[in-house]
């Protein structure tokens, strides 16, 4: 896997997004405790850790779905408050969730453009244009067997096909930071490889990626840096060059 851009040294430029002292409490449960987290431009960060470590909570905060009970968010050094998913999107966040957030009763085209429809001045949909673009995305960005038309209902697709639609949607809108929560869990081996290649390609286009995964080997293939969470705390923040998959596993398992 080409990893030529990955600096062997820690980057000192202003991060694209930086979280400082993020704390989140679900009732009595402390899901995140004073976590610092940053992502530079054109950097792939592997966010790893055992179940319940706080990875999903962190992703939800980055994507604006969850409002942290403590801490601050900075975009290119400027303090921001994400009140909603829309705020986060406008700041450049694009998320693919574990449950993919697709609407089963709608077709692929409407799912891809949901919330960001192309419209005429009065809010009427540009169906033809969106359909054509959806066709293009499905043909070029992500090819997957069994998807024949952007008019297919998402509810009738398989898990892998659904994930491909979710990925295609994220790829199409090409925001600054792609947040991926367990993106490869429903993909076949071949689909996974194509997906990981795609992520590397996105980095070469200047995009940043945060990838949450249980599969360290997948993360290790693409990530430039690893952040390990355990019981809501950050226990490791290491460059790819300074570690390997075995060591990462040891840290995650060892800290239990």
């Amino acid at each position: 896997m080409a990893n030529d851009q990955a600096g062997a040294e820690a980057r000192t430029d202003v991060p694209f997004i930086e979280l400082k002292g993020i704390t989140h409490q679900y009732g009595p449960i402390l899901a995140l405790n004073n976590v610092d987290f940053k992502v530079h431009r054109a950097e792939i960060v592997g966010l790893v850790g055992d179940n319940g470590a706080g990875k999903s909570t962190l992703i939800k905060i980055l994507s604006g779905v969850l409002h942290p009970t403590g801490g601050e968010i900075f975009i290119e050094g400027k303090k921001k408050i994400f009140d909603s998913a829309r705020d986060a999107m406008q700041c450049g966040m694009e998320t693919i969730y574990q449950d993919m957030n697709l609407i089963d009763v709608m077709d692929i085209m409407r799912n891809i453009f949901f919330g960001r429809e192309e419209t005429y001045p009065l809010g009427f949909l540009k169906i033809k244009s969106m359909k054509k673009k959806a066709m293009d995305i499905l043909e070029k960005e992500i090819t997957i067997e069994g998807i024949r038309s952007p008019k297919q209902l998402v509810g009738n697709l398989s898990g892998g096909q659904k994930q491909a639609v979710a990925i295609a949607r994220a790829m199409f809108f090409k925001n600054q930071v792609l947040l991926l929560d367990e993106p490869t869990s429903a993909l076949s081996v071949r689909e996974t490889q194509a997906f990981l290649d795609h992520i590397t390609k996105l980095r070469s286009e200047g995009l940043s990626v945060v990838i949450v995964t249980h599969n360290l080997y997948h993360a290790y293939q693409v990530a430039d840096r690893f952040v390990i969470l355990s019981h809501g705390e950050k226990i490791e923040d290491t460059l790819r060059a300074d570690t390997d998959a075995e060591e990462l596993t040891r840290v995650i398992v060892g800290c239990k």
Binding site: S84, T95, I103, D104, V105, R110, F114, G115, L125, I127
Partner: peptide
């Protein structure tokens, strides 16, 4: 044919997803 109807369908179909997509 309107984004409003699209949101009605989306919210009825999967409210959580619609919210996560910024609606």
């Amino acid at each position: 044919r309107h984004s409003l109807g699209n949101y009605f369908l989306g919210i009825g179909g999967n409210r959580k997803a619609a919210a996560a997509l910024g609606i």
